[in-house]
Computed example of a mutant assay.
Amino acid sequence: MIPEYLKNKLIGEYGKELFADITNSYRSIRKTTLRVNTLKSSIDEIKEILDSNNISFREVEWSNFSLILDNACEEDIRRLDIYKEGKIYLQSLSSQLPPLFVNPQAGELILDMTAAPGGKTTEMAALADNEVLITAIEKNKKRYERLKYNIEHLGAKKISVLNVDARNLDEYFMFDKILLDAPCSGSGTLNIKTINDFSEELVNRLVIVQKDLINEALKHLKVNGDLIYSTCSILKEENEQIIKEILSMHKDIELIPLDISMFSNIPILPVEIDSALCVKPTDIYEGFFVVKIRKIK
């Protein structure tokens, strides 16, 4: 089931015990999770509606807008009016983390470099009650249209959406904060349907893209601004190793430790950078990597 290249990488990086945990997650059917869209609703309203539809749920300790559903799949949720009206957004718990570390504040200029389908873009807008100015970029035309639809559907405002390649931004663009949820191999989200598409060639190709995107992001980050880099990969080649290389190339940046005190119950994998977070894939969480870089001069 597991491609030999991936098996060797995971055992080499995490050991056989964690490899077994990771591969068990690949075989699991992950719980459906959602984010309450606080621009249109409240968690109390959503809980009441889920109760009325006999959908059991669990709250998430570190979030006041996230729910884990125990007896409903995504297709079940799409039939509900709360989904059709944009009051909720189907989003994995792990992918809800990067916007929390961006911590958008009213009036800030924020860039979402690879934004489609818009879950993190609209989450940042909701976190700041539509008081941040977001530029959301997607180069793929079809995904760009989906991004625009989701932004409008969820009631997110003050967002400029660009159908361009984020690696070639006009030089006059400068931002207080940048979220780069980079294209990656998806090694933290694999399942029995997708694992056969995984390959060494895919990883090698995406590592080049990831480096290019980080270097471009740093050109457009203001001094004292933060870059949040995230992937849904758990391979160090796409995460810590890239960050180490970037740090060696740029003397005007430093790593800022993530405040993970509120996430103590999240399953994690060991990291080579103390200030980073790598979520271990389980039947609830996708594998995810997050790190914060600050431009200091």
Rank of each mutant, 00 (worst) to 15 (best):
C184P: 07
L179A: 05
D212P: 03
L162F: 13
V207A: 06
I159K: 03
G155A: 01
R167T: 10
I214G: 05
L147W: 01
L190T: 01
R205Q: 09
Q210L: 07
S199F: 10
M174F: 13
Q210K: 07
F198T: 02
D165G: 06
L147K: 09
S187I: 06
K211T: 14
D176Y: 09
V203S: 11
Y172S: 13
I228A: 15
N204Q: 15
L218C: 14
R146K: 14
K211Y: 05
K222N: 15
L206A: 07
I178F: 03
N191F: 04
R146G: 14
N150A: 03
I195W: 11
S187L: 10
V164E: 13
D176P: 13
V203T: 13
V207C: 15
I195G: 10
L227S: 08
R146F: 05
K177N: 02
E200S: 15
I228V: 15
Y144I: 03
N150P: 07
L179R: 11
V207H: 08
K219V: 01
S233F: 04
V209R: 13
I192T: 14
I228M: 08
L180S: 04
A166C: 09
L169S: 03
K219A: 02
L169T: 05
A166Q: 01
A156V: 01
H220G: 04
T194Y: 07
L154F: 00
S199R: 08
H153P: 00
D197G: 12
I195P: 11
G186D: 11
A217D: 07
Y144L: 03
V203K: 08
D165P: 03
K148V: 02
G225Q: 04
F173N: 13
G225D: 06
L147V: 03
A166G: 14
L154M: 12
K219M: 06
D176H: 15
T189Y: 06
R205E: 14
K193W: 14
L154C: 00
F198N: 01
V161R: 06
K157E: 12
Y144K: 01
L206T: 06
E216V: 07
E171A: 15
L221T: 08
L147Q: 03
F173S: 00
D226M: 12
L179G: 04
L213C: 13
A166T: 02
